[in-house]
């Protein structure tokens, strides 16, 4: 490997390198950072929320946005708790909840396609409605109706790995494959890059738009179920602001807000990066107010790095 190769690799994987450097620094400065236990802890803490970022990646690459995901998370937790309370077994209640989440996505997509309402607006409206719906079905209070074993879905371990982390990695692999290798994935990039060109090439633009929202809605429901399992109740006031955290991770991962550009891998790195920074700051006893400022700066830094990379190309 010569100097030019090294330069090319650093230019291509700046974020990955910065992530590794951050980990090295933290392993020296922060006590216990490098312990297996702590790293699993990072993975567990990012995984429930991180699921949203993968769906959001597809949505943003398709040239859309989804602001309703956080309400979807809260509602899913409440819905599954409500169904359980009503005597419906979880084996039925969980798929029903996921399907409901997907159908909200389908709704957003249909509104986008049929009435040409920008998704920023329709999902903003949906965000409010779903939040209200969650409050309505719970009456404003947590429903704690789950059997004990349900906790595994949010806090359990399989072969030493947290269950949510397994789901997180599986979803990553599936969506990365879909976006990189399948006809549908290519269609998502095409629709986000130039919708008219996609339409004239025989791509079913409406289907693509509806599907990305449906997938995101389903993932939000899965995230909501895992969250309710962790706290063992359906609570309407959880997940506040998660939609913006998801968008932040996608942007940090190098996806362009203009559509048509981005990778699921980048989002994974973005999610882990933000998780590591938060974990590191907590270990170093940085106050939560300072943490917020740092996270904001992180987004600026990532966007700046991206620009730099684009210029070099």
């Amino acid at each position: 490997m010569n100097w030019r190769d090294i330069k090319a690799i650093t230019a291509k994987s700046t974020l990955e390198i910065v992530l590794v450097l951050t980990c090295i620094i933290l392993s020296v400065t922060a006590p216990h950072f490098l312990s297996i236990e702590n790293l699993l802890n990072v993975l567990r803490s990012v995984s429930v929320q991180g699921l949203l970022a993968f769906g959001m990646t597809m949505v943003i690459i398709a040239g859309e946005i989804d602001l309703s995901v956080a309400s979807s998370v809260a509602l899913a937790g409440c819905l599954v708790a409500y169904l359980t309370q009503a005597g419906i077994p979880l084996a039925l209640g969980i798929p029903m909840t996921v399907l409901t989440g997907a159908s909200f996505g389908v709704f957003t997509g249909v509104v986008r396609v049929k009435w040409e309402v920008p998704s920023f607006i329709s999902t903003l409206a949906l965000y409010l409605s779903l939040k209200g719906l969650a409050l309505l079905i719970t009456g404003g209070f947590p429903i704690a109706s789950f059997p004990d074993w349900y906790h595994i879905l949010g806090g359990g371990y399989v072969l030493g790995v947290p269950f949510p982390a397994l789901i997180f990695l599986a979803v990553f692999a599936a969506i990365a494959f879909v976006m990189k290798r399948t006809v549908f994935g290519q269609a998502v990039y095409a629709v986000g890059g130039n919708a008219e060109a996609a339409r004239l090439s025989g791509i079913n633009v409406a289907f693509v738009r509806i599907m990305v929202f449906a997938i995101t809605g389903a993932l939000a429901a899965v995230s909501g179920i895992m969250l309710s399992a962790r706290i063992m109740s359906g609570t309407p006031t959880v997940a506040v602001g998660w939609e913006l955290d998801a968008i932040a991770a996608v942007i940090v991962g190098g996806t362009s807000f203009a559509g048509g550009i981005g990778t699921v891998w980048g989002t994974l790195v973005g999610v882990v990066f933000i998780g590591v920074i938060i974990n590191g700051m907590t270990l170093l006893d940085v106050s939560s107010s300072h943490q917020f400022v740092m996270r904001g700066m992180l987004i600026f830094a990532a966007v700046w790095l991206n620009r730099l990379q684009e210029k070099r190309k």
Binding site: F177, R181, T182, V183, G185, Q186, A187, Y189, A190, G193, N194, E196, A197, A198, L200, S201, G202, I203, G260, I261
Partner: peptide
């Protein structure tokens, strides 16, 4: 068409076969 309509971020090859790319694994992957 008169107005050029390529997808800027896709390669020439991907644009040429846009909407009907050759597939493998029983149509699952491009």
């Amino acid at each position: 068409h008169q107005e050029l309509s390529l997808v800027p971020e896709l390669t020439v090859a991907e644009n040429v076969f846009l909407g009907h790319p050759p597939t493998k694994w029983a149509g699952l992957a491009v």
